[in-house]
Amino acid sequence: MGSQTFDKNVEAVFESVGVTRRDFMKFCGAMAAILGLPPVFASRIANAIEREIPFAGEKRPSVLWLNLQSCTGCTESFTRSDHPSIAEAVLTMISLDYHETLLAASGKSACQACESAMEENRGKYILVVEGAVPVSDDGTFCTIAGKSGVEYLKNMSEKAAFVIALGTCASYGGLPAAKPNPTAAQSVDEFVSPKTVVRIPGCPPIGDVLMATIVHFLFFGKLPALDSENRPQFAYGKYIHEQCRRHYHFENAEMVLGFNDDEYRGGYCLFPLGCKGAFTKNACSVMRWNMGTAWCVGSGHPCVGCSEKDFWDKFTPIYSLVEGRNPK
């Protein structure tokens, strides 16, 4: 990804005075500890300090966002992102040059905005794709401005630096591709080769994970480390079950058998109610949702496994165990 480095970035400023990014974050972590704040405040401190670093005159990286067969849930989740907030990101960090849900212009003016952004940022912009790609019947199951979604995707990805497949639909086909896949919906990576496709699966994914991936790119000029499925390791490195606060109940064989039981209200392990946390890699139990407020299992619903490939078929019925698979 070296060729896609932006010369403007905070790291360069730090490096020029002999401070590495790691040193800087360590400093912020130490500051948080000295102030008696939880570790999460390290990033807030970092934000506060970095605001002092002038960006004037430098170009914000262009992000183009394409909605195909989606429910706009990934967009919704993105707007709940905490650090940075969507307002902060869009006004000061990136240039969100195309996103149909938020764009002021419509129709022809919208298409022109998209085309000029692609031209002006050729080879440099980040393309985020939300939704699956329907291919049957000449792509007529999703058209934009009279063109098929698949053509839109090919055209927009061609000049992108890299592509982020946001959500389980873009990553793996998701809900439209669930059996019997009426529209022959497919994942984004089928159409954008040889471009790098970062997968950020989830139905929807945690908004902060996309934001953190973009911020990583802004700070360090490269993508975060990816796993074998091209998911960022910082968010998809571990199974939910391994980091679940109910895990010790699992180890003690303290299980919930019904939604109206005392064990349910006691926070016991939801595995018998169909929890798929043991087979699902995601950051929910650690990062949690909505400013770190909650997550599915935390509030009392089994993990459905929404970030795993084909979960709509492999992990359903939702409230049943997966045949032949047991948590460790």
């Binding site: 849930g73 919704e76 989740s77 707007t79 709940r80 992102s81 905490d82 907030s85 969507i86 139905c203 929807p204 949702w289 909505n290 400013m291 407020t293 909650a294 997550w295 599915c296 299992v297 935390g298 509030s299 009392g300 619903h301």
Partner: peptide, 18 residues
């Protein structure tokens, strides 16, 4: 972003509460 937490407390997350 802030008030969506109200739904997350009850349904685990927002969007797509349980």
């Amino acid at each position: 972003k802030s008030v969506s937490r109200f739904i997350a407390i009850l349904g685990g997350r927002h969007p797509c509460p349980n």
